[in-house]
Amino acid sequence: MNDVVIGTGEAVVFWVLGPISLAGALGMVLSRNAVHSALWLINTMLALGVFYVVQEAPFLGAVQIIVYTGAIMILFLFVLMLVGRDSSDSVVETLRGQRVAAIVLGLGFAGLVGAGIARATQDLPVAGLAAVQGAETSNIEAIAGLLYSRYLLAFEVTGALLITAAVGALVLTHVEREAGERRTQKELSRARFLTGRAQTLPGPGVYARANSVAAPGLLPDGRLAEDSFATGIEPQEVEQMPRPAGRAQLGSPDAALGTLDPAPSDVPGGREGGDHR
C-alpha cells in the first residue's frame, strides 16, 4: 500500500477551515438566539463539506452542502420560525452543576478521545483512494457501484426508513378537523355578534378585560399597569368581563383561559384561538 503524502495545499485548507468550523460550532453552542445558532451551524457544515471534497469525497461534499446545509438547516429555520424565534434562551442554568459538569466532562472527553486518536493514528499510513477512483472511475461511480451491490439491502432499508419518517412527520403534525368545520367569515362574524360581544377575545396569555386601547391592563394584584396606559387617552374602565373569583374557580392556568370565555359551549365560533395557533 503506497503512502500518500498530504500536500501543502490541503494543509493550508485545513488550517484555514478548521478554525472556522470550530468557531462555528462554538458560536452555535454559545449564541443565545436560536437563529444565530443555526447560522453558525451552517458555517461549520460548509467547512466540513469542503473537507469532504478535499479528502477525495466530492460527492459527499456536494451532498453535505445541498442536503445538510440546504435542506435540513432550512427545515430547522422553518421550525424555528413556527415555534417563535424571539424566545431567546435564558442564561440562567436551572439544573444545579449541569453547566460545570458538562464543561468538565466535555474537556475530559475531548482530551481523552483526542489523545487516544492522536496516539493511535500518528503513524497511520494513508492509502489514498487513487486505487478505487480517479482515472477511469469517478467518485460517484465508485460509490454507486458499492451502494447498489454490497450495500443494496441497507440502501433499500434506508429508503423505507425515509418513507416511514415522512409519514411519521405527517401523522405527528396533522391536526384532525371535521369536514365542514371550517366556517366562512360571514358565519363567524354572525356568531360573534350573537354573543352580544362584538370584540374578539384577547390573545392567549393576556390578562385583559377589554381590548380597547382606552382600558389599561391590570397587574396580577388588580392594580392598573401604568405601562399599559395609552398615550393621549385618559384611562377608563370599559365593560368589565367576568373575573375568576379565586383559585378554585381559576384552577389550572389552562382552565383559566377557558373560564374567561363568557359562553364557551354554545358559541364555538367565538373561540378562534385554535385557528391562530
Binding site: 460550532a25 453552542v29 466532562l105 466535555g106 478521545v113
Partner: peptide, 12 residues
C-alpha cells in the same frame, strides 16, 4: 473536538 462541542451543547 467538534463532537465534544456538540455533546456539551446538548447538555447546556
Amino acid at each position: 473536538i467538534l463532537f465534544t462541542i456538540g455533546a456539551v451543547g446538548v447538555l447546556v
